[in-house]
């Protein structure tokens, strides 16, 4: 059985955020929620400023705290390494939300798509309305609807590693990345690109939200790795 994981090549990443938008479109994630996200840090004083942009998502941890605390087994570790959830078994207790040290589990407090229920036009009679557009399109217009088409109120949700695409296709964030900075594959297969990259480069992982470090220091056993440096800037002057 495969053990899926991801390697983020920070040198190749340009911080373009395509992954975030692609994820939202694939899974119909509302505007204010993120299954794929970023952690952006600036260090230093003008002009020697260093930016680090970390493309983040569920780490599909070996010892997933979200799954451990789930009272119904709705959130669970699957055989292929993915941390999955069964929406029908979710009782909305939100213990997983609190347990995740990366804050990668979100909860839909409200109907995620109420935007498209609105039937007012900015110019009455001459411009469309969200509802009319949705009718015309036959679906929620902003979304691909190929992953998890309909988001619901009162459920916890998170990155699925695009379980509906894997293994035939890469997760959508990997697929859209213009920088070829995201690599997905089987960590147990020594010939996979992810394994090869991890052999070649030192890697770090997220220890908790806002902090990265050596994987040995992470209690959770995260499976999203970061290699190389995002920012190489070392010379800047101003007079």
């Amino acid at each position: 059985m495969a053990k899926y994981g991801m390697v983020v090549d920070l040198q190749s990443c340009s911080g373009c955020s395509s992954c975030i938008t692609a994820c939202k479109r694939e899974h119909s994630v509302p505007a204010d929620k993120y299954w794929c996200d970023s952690e952006i840090k600036y260090e230093g004083k003008f002009p020697m400023v260093k930016l680090e942009y970390l493309s983040t998502r569920c780490n599909h941890c070996d010892d997933a705290p979200c799954a451990e605390v789930c009272p119904t087994g709705a959130m669970f570790k699957a055989d292929n390494g993915l941390v999955k959830y069964e929406r029908d078994d979710c009782i909305s207790c939100r213990q997983c939300v609190n347990a995740c040290p990366y804050e990668e589990v979100s909860f839909n407090e409200e109907d995620p798509h109420s935007f498209w229920d609105d039937n007012t036009a900015v110019i009455d009679g001459f411009t469309g309305t969200p509802q009319e557009t949705a009718d015309q399109v036959g679906a929620n217009p902003a979304y691909a609807g190929e992953g998890t088409p309909v988001r619901e109120e009162g459920l916890v949700e998170k990155c699925t590693f695009c379980a509906h695409r894997v293994p035939d296709k890469d997760p959508i964030c990997v697929n859209i990345c213009p920088c070829d900075a995201l690599v997905f594959g089987d960590l147990d297969d020594p010939n996979s690109e992810v394994s090869q990259l991890l052999d070649r480069y030192d890697a770090k992982v997220r220890i908790q939200k806002g902090e990265t470090g050596d994987r040995r220091n992470a209690d959770t056993g995260p499976n999203v790795y970061y290699i190389r440096e995002y920012c190489n800037l070392d010379k800047a002057t101003a007079k």
């Binding site: 373009c16 260093k50 930016l51 995002y230 190489n232 800037l233 010379k235 800047a236 101003a238």
Partner: peptide, 14 residues
């Protein structure tokens, strides 16, 4: 300005 590309450069000349 420290641009997206400046962050990926070796030298920044502001």
């Amino acid at each position: 300005r420290y641009s997206a590309t400046a962050a990926k450069s070796d030298e920044w000349l502001p």
